[in-house]
Amino acid sequence: MNIIYMLLVISVIVALVFFWAFILSVRKGQYDDTYTPSVRMLFEDEIVKDKDTKKKQKTNEQLK
């Protein structure tokens, strides 16, 4: 059962890692704005699509 010492050390370390990650995320301002990223996340693909269609149009024009 002495393995419990090791398990305790590991569990505390894991907990501390998450705690450190939390502090870091707060310090970096991740919780300052919790709304905008949720909207921004949905944009990314659309911009690429826009660019693609533009490129296609241009290449079409060039082909003509």
């Binding site: 300052d32 704005d33 919790t34 709304y35 905008t36 909207v39 921004r40 944009f43 911009i47």
Partner: peptide, 24 residues
Amino acid sequence: CIWVLENLDKLDSAVRTSQVNFPK
């Protein structure tokens, strides 16, 4: 609004990045 303001670089090449904080 968020979308167009975060794509300001397409309107003015001098803009490197723009980021919106919606609640503020």
